[in-house]
Structure formats: structure tokens, C-alpha cells
């Protein structure tokens, strides 16, 4: 279970997130919706340790943790970026196994076996030796999901998972997210697409821009 307690984030004196409290139970899907500029992505960046919060705390399974300093513990939050950010110089397989090998110190065989399972599961079989530029948008996104999953995250976050894809791929993303839910993955999805959010989420958090006071 992930808990946010009184999270506040400011940029240059402007408050983006103000005293936010939130609980995401294990295995559930939280969708964060709202107009652009409302701080959805900022919230996700704080959770995943890309931005430092100004005050408040994160708790995972009751224990306080600081995602900004998450290097050495295993309370990991995985992220699937809006533009995927695959590493163009590495093959699909290398994209997935790089961190498990370098960070989790898995052997190459071990990392590749686990990666292959996930590759097969997300319908990427046969793409292992391709480079990202040879993949379609949907395939890139699935590689990004597999790459995040290979680090055994407790929670998987998505930033606008539908926005870089053709509209007809939306359903595929829904299916993937729901199938991961079936395997008990806790997921947080930032989106501006309300109907997409309603289709997948157990809990919807609506955020609005904070008016300067």
C-alpha cells in the first residue's frame, strides 16, 4: 500500500501540489486526471523520485521512504514515460536486461530468461534483437512496460500512456494495464482521458490547477 501524507511541491514559489493525501491499496489502479498544468505529471515525478518534494512523506507498506533517494532500497516505483525513453543504442533485449544486470546484479542468463517471459507475455516475441527505431509506437510502449517490470517494481506508473499512440491502440493499453492488475501489480496512471481512466481505474483522483492566492 502506498500512502501520500501532506505532500507539497512548489516550483519557484508557485505551489503545484498542496498538502495532498492519498492512499493506493495493493493491486489497485489509481488514475490521476485533470487538465494540463494541474500537476498530474509533477505528482508522478515526485512519486518516482525525479523531483524532490518540499514537504510531506511517502509511505510504502507503512514505512516512510524517500523516492528521491531510492537507489539503494528495493521500494521501487517503475515508470513508463509518455515518450517511452527507450535507449536507442540498445536492442529490445538489452533495454530490458541492462538494469537487472547492472543494478540487481542478475546474471545475463537469469535476466534474459525473466525478460523473455515478460516479452512473451506482452506480445513482443520475435522483437528481441531489434532496435527501438524499428518498432511501432505501441511496441515501444510495451518494451518500456517490460523494461520497468523487469526491475520488479512494487508500483508501476504511467505518464499519459494513450497520448503518444493511435486512438485504436487505447484498448490494447487498457487490456495490458488490466492484465497486470490481474497479476496484482499496483498501478498509477496519469491521463487527461476521462473515459480511459474510468475504464481502468479503481480510484480516480481529479486534480485542478491551484489558483495563486
Amino acid at each position: 500500500m502506498l500512502e501520500l501524507k501532506n505532500i507539497t511541491k512548489r516550483f519557484d514559489g508557485r505551489t503545484i501540489i498542496n498538502n495532498m493525501n492519498l492512499t493506493v491499496p495493493d493491486g489497485q489502479i489509481l488514475a490521476i486526471v485533470g487538465p494540463s498544468g494541474a500537476g498530474k505529471t509533477t505528482l508522478l515525478r515526485c512519486m518516482s523520485g525525479l523531483e524532490r518534494i518540499d514537504s510531506g512523506e511517502f509511505r510504502l507498506d507503512g514505512q516512510v521512504f524517500d523516492p528521491y533517494e531510492n537507489r539503494d532500497n528495493d521500494k521501487v516505483i517503475g515508470v513508463v514515460f509518455q515518450d517511452f525513453q527507450l535507449f536507442p543504442n540498445l536492442t529490445v533485449m538489452e533495454n530490458i536486461t541492462l538494469s537487472p544486470e547492472m543494478v540487481l546484479k542478475q546474471s545475463k542468463t537469469e535476466a534474459e530468461a525473466r525478460a523473455q517471459e515478460l516479452i512473451d507475455q506482452l506480445d513482443l516475441t520475435g522483437k528481441e534483437t531489434l532496435h527501438p527505431f524499428q518498432l511501432s509506437g505501441g511496441q515501444k510502449q510495451r518494451v518500456a512496460i517490460v523494461r520497468a517490470l523487469a526491475m520488479n517494481p512494487k508500483i508501476l506508473c504511467y505518464d499519459e500512456p494513450t497520448s503518444a499512440l493511435d486512438p485504436d491502440l487505447r484498448e490494447t493499453v487498457e487490456k495490458i494495464i488490466l492484465s497486470l492488475k490481474a497479476s496484482k501489480m499496483t498501478q498509477i496512471v496519469v491521463t487527461h482521458d476521462m473515459s480511459f481512466a474510468e475504464n481502468i481505474a479503481d480510484q480516480i483522483l481529479r486534480v485542478e490547477p491551484i489558483k495563486p492566492s
Partner: peptide, 13 residues
């Protein structure tokens, strides 16, 4: 792009 560093960071490299 900055995103390459960020994606490496969330992968804990």
C-alpha cells in the same frame, strides 16, 4: 534528451 537520464534514473542506474 533529459528523458534519457531520467529513464536511467528510475531504472536505478
Amino acid at each position: 534528451p533529459e528523458g534519457q537520464y531520467e529513464s536511467a534514473k528510475v531504472l536505478r542506474l
